[in-house]
Each structure stands twice: as structure tokens, then as C-alpha cells.
Nucleic acid binder design. Structure first.
Lengths: 181, 181
DNA sequence: GAGGTAAACGTAGGCTCCCTACGTTTCCTG
DNA sequence: CAGGAAACGTAGGGAGCCTACGTTTACCTC
């Protein structure tokens, strides 16, 4: 059965506040602040999102889904990886909170976001194995770990440049035909 | 003037407790728990270590100093980097708290640990530029960012293997003479 | 050894945040 | 427009951070 009207509105307000506050103050924002900002009590926030992780996941649901899409139709898998990395960098730039979600560790029961991203990487790597444009001796897990470095970079003005170089390094390391100058 | 005897003893007890609790429960351990474990009040902890970061830095002072040492005497810079990376992986494995310290971001005023490590990497990279064994188009900052991935890996039993592969990837990417199979 | 003093200490408490129990209000359906 | 389920807010316990303040303790001097 559908949510009641007030519940729907509160939920939407919470997601909106969360998106803004995560962007402004990082993923560690007090949940009580999010609730206050949304004009709602903390209990309501917990009712809709039982954990911080759940709130982050819902907030970035669209972004996560987009990262799951891979276009292997045109060009080699290496090209697809390059495109995917560019999108990943862009998301990482604006959505720092995503990092905590993607790298939320507990061995089992990892959040869906992680699975979606690993899945996308796996498809690209498999394609690279088929068309020979990517080395076959690294798995999605390896690549994701390398990209984890993004979240350790200070978020200053040179972040995009740094991140792009990191991505290029990963790409070069995975490509069979090196593009070194 | 030297510390008073009781102060010295308390300080040592705090460092000992901190080392154990950081290792057991990660870098997020409650400082009050550290104080309690050391048989000391929380105020005393703050008197000796004004911030969590300061406590971590002191706890791992020896490890940090060791990471600052680089042996460029024998073999190429690439070999030196390989050795340094091995040590780095080992430290990262046992001292997860170090990560928070090394990657503590604030643009200015970064803690000394970061500087020590960046310095060591810079010396290795410079040597690699001289002897031609390492690519010259990446700086210490880049390398450190790549290694940041270590701290996003789940700390399960396969951690060492994963970490070693990451390090190898970085090494391969930086070496001029590729060691790909 | 007996003080005197600065250094070091612990207690206590305010603040913020997390999370839950419980009584109250609000929406929807008939 | 009433009844009941759904959703809500208030209130509060617990944990952790950090500081103010009064008390204790080691060291130095005589």
C-alpha cells in the first residue's frame, strides 16, 4: 500500500535536505541536523531511513543506478572504461558521501551501491578480456580499491585534476596498448 | 624542563593503551576508553595529547620515522620503491589508524606524518628520474593518493594479498621497464 | 626531613549526537 | 463524519567530546 500523503512529503523533504547537507558538510553531518532542516523530528527520519547508510543510499539512488549502466556498444572495452571512469570521477567530486557508502566495508552484507558498481566494472573487464583491450589479471575489486584513493584526496580546487590523473593512471595500467607519451 | 615522574608514567601508559586499542578496535576508539584502560582520567589524556590526531601521531612515531628512511644505495630507484612499498603495506596492515593520520586532509597544516611520507616518496621518484627507472610524470602526491586505496579495503584475511596486488599495480605503472607477463 | 610551590591530577558537568519508547495527532476509508 | 491504522513529536537515556575548577602530588630548597 502506498505511503500516506504526509509521510511522502516528509520523506521527500528529508531526501532534499540530506542531499544539500551532505554536499555542504560532508557525509558526517548530524542526522538531527538533517531532520531539523527538513522541518521534521529525528524520530521521523529514523522511521523512513533506519540508518545513516540507508539515507545516503536513497539520496544518491539515481547516481548509483547511473553508475551501473555501461555502454559497450561502441568502441573497445578500454574506451568504455575511460568513459565510465570519467563519470565516476564526476560523481566522486560532488558526492563525497558516496565514498563512505561504496567502501562501507563489512565483508558480508555490503550495501547495494557497492554491488552495482562492482558489477559494472566486472562487465567492462570481461569485455576487455574478450576484445583484448584490457589486461585480464585484475578484477573489479582491484579497480575499485585503486579508485578508493579518490576519497583520500583533499577536496581543494585541484581535486578534479588530481582525480583525473589517478583515473588515467589506472586506465594506463589496465590497458594492453599503453598510451604513454 | 623534564616531565614529572607521574606525568611520564601516565604518558607512557596512555601510549601503550592507545597502541593496543587502536590495533584492536580501529582508530575510532573512544578516547575515554583509552584513558580508562590506562588507569587515568580523560582530562589527563587531553593534557598530554590535545587531539586524537596527536595521540595517533605519538603512538606511531617510530613507524612514521621508519617510513621516512629510504635506501637508494643499492639497486635502481624502482627497486627502492618496491622495498618501500612492501614496508608501507606492512605498516598499513597492522596500523590502520595511520591511514586517518596520513590522509587527514586539511589543505594547510597537515600533520608531520604526511610530510615524512611524501618526502620519502619524493626522494625515490627523484632518484628514479635520474637513473631512468621510474616515469617522471607523477609526483609523490599522486602515489600517495593511489595508496590511499589501502584504507578502503576491508580488513579481512585476504587483505595482505589485495594490498600487495595494489602495490604491484602502482609499481608497474610507475616503472619504465614494464614487468608485465 | 619539613615545608612550599608549580605541576599534574581527577571530578563533575555541559554539550552534541545517536537511537528508542510511548503517548498523541493526522490522514484516509467507509 | 467517525473509527482505526499510520505517521508523528516529545522526551529521555546513553555515549562520547571537551573544559573549568578545586585538589593532590612530586620535586626543590632549606
Amino acid at each position: 500500500m502506498p505511503l500516506r500523503a504526509d509521510a511522502r512529503a516528509n520523506r521527500a523533504a528529508l531526501l532534499e535536505s540530506a542531499a544539500r547537507l551532505f554536499a555542504e558538510h560532508g557525509p558526517g553531518v548530524a542526522l538531527e541536523a538533517v531532520a531539523r532542516d527538513a522541518g521534521v523530528s529525528i524520530a521521523t527520519l529514523y522511521r523512513h531511513f533506519p540508518s545513516r547508510e540507508a539515507l545516503v543510499a536513497e539520496t544518491y539512488a539515481a547516481e548509483i543506478a547511473a553508475l551501473g549502466e555501461v555502454d559497450l556498444a561502441e568502441g573497445s572495452a578500454a574506451v568504455a572504461l575511460a568513459h565510465w571512469l570519467t563519470r565516476f570521477v564526476e560523481f566522486a567530486r560532488t558526492k563525497r558521501a558516496l565514498g563512505d557508502l561504496v567502501h562501507a566495508l563489512p565483508e558480508g552484507a555490503s550495501p547495494p551501491a557497492r554491488g552495482v558498481i562492482l558489477d559494472a566494472l566486472e562487465r567492462i573487464l570481461a569485455a576487455g578480456k574478450r576484445d583484448g583491450s584490457l589486461r585480464a589479471d585484475h578484477d573489479a575489486y582491484d579497480v575499485l580499491a585503486l579508485l578508493g584513493g579518490f576519497w583520500t584526496l583533499p577536496s581543494g580546487p585541484q581535486w578534479p585534476e588530481r582525480a583525473q590523473r589517478l583515473a588515467q593512471f589506472v586506465l594506463d595500467g589496465l590497458a594492453t596498448t599503453s598510451s604513454e607519451p
